[in-house]
Design a protein around this nucleic acid. Structure first.
Lengths: 340, 340
DNA sequence: CTCCGGTCGGAATGCGCTTTCCATGTCCAC
DNA sequence: GTGGACATGGAAAGCGCATTCCGACCGGAG
């Protein structure tokens, strides 16, 4: 009943362990055709399943890829994970997954656990936090690379990791330009706490572009980096909209740093009977596929999440030197929520 | 520069390999306090990181959990994965992930790969297909359990695996009852190809409940099990709605077997200027969180996806005999899309 | 016919760790 | 003061496989 070992297969086939190994596990030295046949038959006969653990130990390579995301149930990350997973499969790698609930400590634990499992490479996806909060993970990654592993981060620089950068700044700037083009001049920023670097990048670039084009940022609202954060911002946004209307000014345009926040915001505005886009315009970021059928459809910046996951894995499995140089594109998608 | 081994730590601490092992890796036999201290210090000094692969080989237990889902970017699965991941972490297990793009062959490959990695247990999440298509995976699972592993499936029975059953039949029946209560009598079923067992379970139970309560199923539309399938069904649904209106009958109520299909359907109806719920009523299934802010809000059956993931992992890591007996609840959520 | 390069199987070593199994040492009861 | 029950540290035997090294063998060139 016990699982057959390679030795059993070798015995069954009447060959040595070495020969069986060479036949079954892609060695550079292939034994003669007759032996190959015998070994194959024996393996099939016994229902032999190679022990990847033992292989890993002997080869000192596991073929494992560690993927740490901040919340696998968030479409942003699950889409990246899908791309990473697909790429990993194509490269013959297995994916070890860790979801950290957006807790930097959990990120560190995950990286440490991956290091213990001797994954060949680690991909960390998600926004960076403050340097202090990032330090522990960064240290783990340094140790990991010192031990021969490779680290890639999807987001912002972290320790020694190669970086796949979401086009946050460029996307936000382009979005600002497109909205300017549409005639919007009065903006509100719906951002997240300062430690959320992604939010800062997007809001910052947006604000800069607005300033450069002669627009105006009326206010920066800081809320949780989630749907509920957007919802919570609704009251303040509604107030601003009313002030604008009362003053006979153009309806303000809110840039929410993620689609998910934008959706939450719109939900609250609906409760408050503030019309989008008539009373307030709203734009988001990410172009989450699941949200594309939302009403009103939301103006946003489309970024290739799945491709980013693939790029990260490609950089992770690439031979020495191959950089993560690939540029990540983006596209502004104007929809109803900012229509004038 | 090479990674320190346990032997190095032992040397550094001036103790034997065995003692170092006992100190660092939760043995039942703890050496004397002074030695413990010395070993700990040596390990910290050298930056020792245990090699989980070698440990696995020696213990012949990996502490790994294999999770195979049909599409990790689908909120249904990513939510289950989130629950599974959280539970795995609590149980001190790591998760190996495979996403199969809804391909039964890929499911088989994934299970085989997990078996090769000697995971302690495998969780397969997702609808079952036809018995013929399921056979290969089932065989792999049989072999896996024969080798001492444990298998759990979230969905419908598959080979020897324990089953966590989504409340498809009960949920659909309750939904039908609730809609009947609301006064709906004329239904259309938006289902998926016959091989998609989940769709069959939901549509079947719904149809039975409708028949039992004296309602009428006007038509069963079969489409892809996806958002686009729902979208594609829009034209036919619109036609049915117009017929109803022309005949002066009550607007039909469509039961789409998933929220995602319902959303797609509504999107197409919007294009066609068919109002929901005025001209057609629509209900879904799953209560996907990301979709809760949709307009109109969609009547659906809420099922505890995350908990299902947790239950699956609990069953997977449970000691011999602990069954997957836990019942999975559900709740009908009436929203605007079926308002009269 | 001999010698050499090349090929091919197999024996043996080691990957890094856990876990018996032993040999000591310690303490208490008698 | 001695014997035995325990506790404790270490030596060594694997866990299942890859791979190096070695000897045997084959064919062709000289």
């Amino acid at each position: 009943m016990a699982r057959p070992r390679l030795q059993d297969v070798a015995n069954h086939a009447g060959v040595s362990l070495a020969t069986a190994s060479r036949v079954l596990n892609g060695s550079s030295r292939q034994p003669g055709p007759e032996l190959v046949e015998r070994v194959r038959a024996a393996a099939a006969d016994l229902g032999y399943v190679v022990n990847a653990q033992a292989q890993a130990l002997a080869r000192s390579r596991t073929g494992l890829l560690g993927l740490v995301v901040q919340d696998i149930s968030d479409p942003y990350f699950s889409t990246i994970a899908a791309g990473a997973q697909a790429a990993a499969r194509e490269h013959g790698r297995m994916v070890l997954l860790a979801s950290t609930e957006r807790d930097p400590d959990a990120e560190r634990d995950a990286v440490a656990a991956f290091a213990a499992h001797r994954v060949d490479a680690i991909v960390v996806a998600g926004t960076r936090w403050s340097p202090e909060e990032d330090a522990p993970v960064a240290d783990e990654l340094v140790a990991f690379e010192a031990g021969g592993g490779r680290a890639v981060v999807v987001g912002q620089p972290l320790g020694p990791a190669q970086v796949i950068r979401p086009p946050n700044a460029a996307g936000a700037a382009d979005l600002a330009a497109a909205l300017h083009e549409q005639g919007h001049r009065r903006f509100v920023l719906l951002s997240a706490p300062e430690r959320v670097v992604t939010a800062q990048e997007r809001a910052g670039a947006f604000a800069d572009a607005v300033a450069a084009s002669g627009g105006e940022v009326l206010e920066v609202i800081e809320q949780q980096f989630s749907r509920d954060g957007g919802y919570a911002a609704g009251d303040r946004v509604a107030a601003i909209a009313r002030e604008s209307a009362d003053a006979g000014l153009d309806a303000p345009c809110v840039f929410a740093v993620t689609d998910v926040m934008a959706i939450g915001l719109i939900a609250r505005l609906r409760d408050l009977a503030v019309a989008v886009p008539d009373d307030v315009r709203v734009a988001g970021f990410d172009d989450i596929p699941t949200l594309r059928d939302h009403v009103p459809s939301v103006t946003t910046v489309s970024i290739p999440l799945e491709e980013m996951g693939r790029l990260a894995v490609a950089a992770a499995v690439a031979e020495e030197g191959a950089g993560a140089g690939a540029a990540v594109g983006h596209e502004v998608v104007l929809r109803e929520s900012t229509a004038r």
